[in-house]
């Protein structure tokens, strides 16, 4: 439970790290066991929400024709998502989804980057609950858009009935149902969760492994330096994964919306 605290306090590592290390101590009843109502994870999610709202409000409070630095930054994020994700994937109709994609991209990017920001050092997305809720929002969005665009019957007819002779349709419709309506939200959530979980686990293994070797015996102690150098290298890799996963999540949501809007695919 207090894996990381143990390492720093007692100088001995609880190696190897377990899933328990992802359940951080409770904050609101301070240090309470088995209480997950307000933990560091919860606090980080609220911080992410607050930072995003304040940043975008502040940068667009007094828009200038010649943008200030803050305004330029906010506008280039929005411009990137709108032009390179929404318009590229969906086309002209994608502009109206750009605000949602931008929010999604920024939120996933920020909560992911908590994995390597000092003193946060764990991403809320390494708990399946947060990616799952984000995936459900995207799932509801693209289904709603599709139903609104085509009508209920035509939307499901479009997405469930492939162009094939009638006698193989009974074989194909369950596959389409499975791959369109069940695998999609699941793979969205699991992809983000698994990447952040594995990233945090990897960093834990090398950090705690360093401590474990340090306290093992005199011969292994120098090797722990190598382990910590690996941790630094993996932190840079983690940064790459963080940005890539935020981008992938947004792009996939955009491609699902595009699929729902398309006449027939």
């Amino acid at each position: 439970m207090f894996g990381q605290a143990n390492v720093l306090a007692a100088g001995q590592a609880a190696f190897p790290p377990t899933v328990e290390d992802f359940y951080l101590p409770s904050i609101l009843p301070w240090g309470a066991h088995e209480s997950y109502w307000f933990t560091k994870i919860t606090a980080m999610v609220w911080i992410a929400v607050g930072v995003l709202i304040i940043f975008f409000l502040a940068s667009y409070r007094n828009p200038q024709l010649v943008p200030t630095k803050k305004q330029w930054f906010a506008e280039s994020i929005y411009g990137f998502v709108r032009n390179n994700i929404a318009v590229d994937m969906i086309g002209h109709a994608g502009v109206r989804f750009a605000p949602y994609f931008t929010t999604l991209f920024c939120f996933v990017l920020l909560t992911n980057s908590f994995a390597i920001i000092p003193f946060f050092q764990i991403s809320p997305n390494s708990h399946i609950a947060f990616p799952a809720v984000l995936a459900i929002i995207s799932y509801v969005l693209f289904n709603y858009i599709g139903i609104k665009q085509h009508g209920f019957v035509k939307y499901f007819k479009n997405s469930l009935i492939p162009p094939a002779p009638w006698y193989i349709l009974p074989l194909l419709i369950p596959i389409e149902l499975f791959s369109t309506f069940i695998v999609r939200p699941f793979s969205l959530a699991v992809r983000l969760f698994a990447n952040m979980f594995a990233g945090h686990m990897l960093l834990l293994v090398f950090t705690l492994g360093g401590f474990a070797m340090l306290s093992a015996n005199a011969w292994l102690a120098p090797v722990s330096v190598l382990s910590w150098v690996m941790t630094i290298a993996l932190t840079f890799l983690e940064f790459l994964v963080i940005v890539l996963q935020a981008y992938v999540f947004t792009v996939l949501t955009a491609s699902y919306v595009q699929g729902a809007l398309a006449e027939e695919h």
Partner: peptide, 8 residues
Amino acid sequence: MAGDQTPR
């Protein structure tokens, strides 16, 4: 950029 309503 955020203000203009003429996407490419």
